[in-house]
Computed example of a mutant assay.
Amino acid sequence: MAKLNYYDVILKPVVTEKSMSSMGEKRYTFLVHPEANKTQIKDAVEKMFDGTKVKSVNTMNVLGKKKRRGMVVGKTAKTKKAVVSLTDDSKDIELFESL
């Protein structure tokens, strides 16, 4: 496994109805690098967003879906998602404020 910098760990936020409803409870969902572990995700969130303190990180591996184009069958890429819970005294993430 190559050494990941904190800006390589978080790829993009996941914007769905379920993830937007959990933002009131200070839970944010991100698409992360497939080889990143929970401590790397925690450090990346605390360094990228000032004033945030991470309480817990839950990760899930999402398998690729089967896709078919004519007779050719293939799969989409597998991904990894992380649900980051912030402490009560932590600041909100400004990235989601405008959504």
Score class of each variant (00 low, 15 high):
V15R: 03
S90P: 09
G74W: 12
R69A: 15
K38W: 00
V45E: 07
M48G: 11
S56Y: 01
I93H: 00
V9P: 01
L63P: 13
P34L: 05
D8H: 03
K75A: 11
K55Q: 14
M1P: 11
S90V: 07
N58D: 10
L4V: 04
A44W: 03
T52V: 10
K12P: 04
D8F: 02
K75V: 07
K81P: 10
T59E: 10
A82T: 08
F49S: 08
V72T: 12
L86E: 06
Y28Q: 11
M23C: 12
E97M: 03
K55P: 11
R68T: 15
V83Q: 04
D88V: 12
K42L: 11
K12C: 11
K65E: 14
K78L: 10
F49M: 05
L63F: 14
N61E: 14
K47G: 07
V57A: 08
E46W: 01
K53V: 12
H33T: 03
R69W: 13
M1C: 08
V9K: 00
V45G: 00
H33D: 13
G24D: 14
D88S: 14
G70H: 13
K65N: 10
M71H: 14
K65W: 03
L4D: 08
L99Q: 08
K12N: 12
Y7T: 12
K75P: 04
E46D: 08
A77S: 11
T79C: 08
G24L: 04
S22W: 02
Y7G: 04
S90D: 14
K26I: 06
L4Q: 05
S21R: 10
V62R: 02
T79N: 15
T59F: 00
G51I: 07
A82Q: 07
N61Q: 09
E94Q: 13
F96Y: 03
V83N: 12
V15L: 12
S85E: 15
P34W: 03
T16E: 12
T59H: 01
V57F: 01
S56K: 07
T87N: 09
V54C: 00
K75H: 14
I41D: 05
L31A: 04
L95N: 07
V72G: 05
E25S: 03
D50E: 14
V72W: 09
T52Y: 06
Y6W: 09
Y6F: 06
T16A: 03
A36R: 00
S85D: 10
K55I: 06
F30R: 01
M20H: 11
K65Q: 15
L95M: 13
K38A: 13
M71S: 15
M1Y: 11
G24T: 01
S56A: 13
P34R: 04
I41F: 04
V54L: 02
R27I: 14
R69K: 15
M48P: 06
M20E: 12
K12W: 13
M23Q: 06
L11H: 03
K42N: 07
